[in-house]
């Protein structure tokens, strides 16, 4: 188990390294001049050149990369030789010249919004998805199963922007059950926080739950016909024990894995939901950084979200090894 852990952590570090290199190459080396993008219409070659120097883009790519990585650990200073040097504290993911702010603090402001959005939706979709999926599997072919499958098919095939706009139109505009969303932190105004988050949670949870109902139902049906479940029955165990201890234990393990990865994906930002409900989360930040061609910000967000997913992968794999003894031998 320990060797497995060490190997997985080393693998993760290597992946992170490759990831940062490729993201860096993608954004810094590709055709197109980021320095040109930093100044508006009244642009002269002199301004572009001075901006290029301030951004550090006049240095060789390798130096740029080393500075970027070392900035994450010890911080760095942009345009150190100019009259107004810009200090960027560790962990420094770069500096957005458009927004005149450190990338890290921009992310730190948006991340909690996305975090609350993702966690809330996750709890709802896991509870609903597993419960309905198990119920449908155990009542296969009866009307309850067909009803659940039908609804999940609708939820599954509904585009998120459409469902989101429907929710906004009916719940907020037409019936006025909820006020227009205005995000506040939960510790400032819990009631308004819940009012704002309720629809985004429902939107995201619907999309994922629809998928998880089907996934769970298939998994449970599959393990129910597995040989070891037949063995459990042949021992004369009560049906409840057969289903919960033998079938679900084995059947739900891969689902928890998939859920962990989906949650990690969401933590990187739920672009459509955040935009529909004007939540200032990572997804919204990513979109606006792309619209503004704010290169340092794009790089920072991309690397961070990718790192989250890689890390989640590691956590999920380790959890899997705890649950499934067959994984541990390797």
């Amino acid at each position: 188990m320990f060797a497995y852990l060490v190997r997985r952590v080393l693998l993760m570090l290597m992946l992170l390294f490759l990831l940062s290199v490729s993201v860096f190459l993608l954004f810094a080396i590709l055709p197109g001049d980021p320095a040109r993008l930093t100044c508006g219409k009244a642009c002269t070659p002199a301004i572009i050149e001075s901006n290029r120097h301030r951004l550090g883009l006049d240095e060789p790519p390798l130096t740029q990369y080393v500075k970027f990585v070392s900035g994450i650990f010890v911080g760095r200073t942009f345009s150190a030789d100019s009259p107004q040097p810009i200090k960027c504290d560790a962990p420094c993911l770069g500096y957005s010249f458009n927004r005149q702010e450190q990338v890290m603090s921009l992310i730190a402001r948006s991340a909690p919004v996305t975090f609350f959005l993702a966690i809330g939706a996750f709890v709802i979709w896991i509870v609903v998805g597993l419960a309905l999926g198990i119920f449908a599997a155990l009542n296969r072919g009866r009307w309850g199963d067909r009803l659940i499958m039908g609804i999940s098919l609708i939820g599954y095939s509904m585009p998120s922007f459409f469902l989101g706009l429907l929710l906004v139109f009916f719940v907020i505009i037409k019936w006025q059950f909820l006020p227009f969303p205005a995000y506040v932190a939960p510790w400032e105004n819990p009631f308004q926080f819940f009012q704002t988050m309720l629809l985004p949670w429902i939107l995201l949870a619907t999309l994922y739950a629809a998928f998880y109902i089907r996934l769970t139902r298939n998994q449970v049906l599959e393990v129910l016909s597995d040989d070891y479940v037949r063995t459990a029955r042949a021992k004369g165990l009560p049906e409840r024990t057969v289903v919960v201890k033998h079938a679900l234990r084995a059947g739900l393990t891969p689902i928890v894995t998939a859920a962990g990865l989906d949650l990690a994906g969401l933590l990187g930002g739920a672009i459509i939901s955040e935009n529909i409900f004007s939540l200032p989360g990572l997804g919204a930040l990513a979109i606006s950084s792309i619209i503004d061609s704010d290169l340092p910000l794009i790089t920072g967000i991309t690397i961070l979200t990718a790192a989250i997913i890689i890390f989640a992968n590691l956590v999920v794999d380790l959890l899997y090894a705890v649950v499934d003894p067959r994984v541990r031998v390797i």
Partner: peptide, 14 residues
């Protein structure tokens, strides 16, 4: 009591 064909899949892996 019953013994089955494939003892690998008939025992619970977990």
């Amino acid at each position: 009591a019953m013994i089955f064909q494939d003892p690998m899949s008939s025992l619970h892996p977990f």
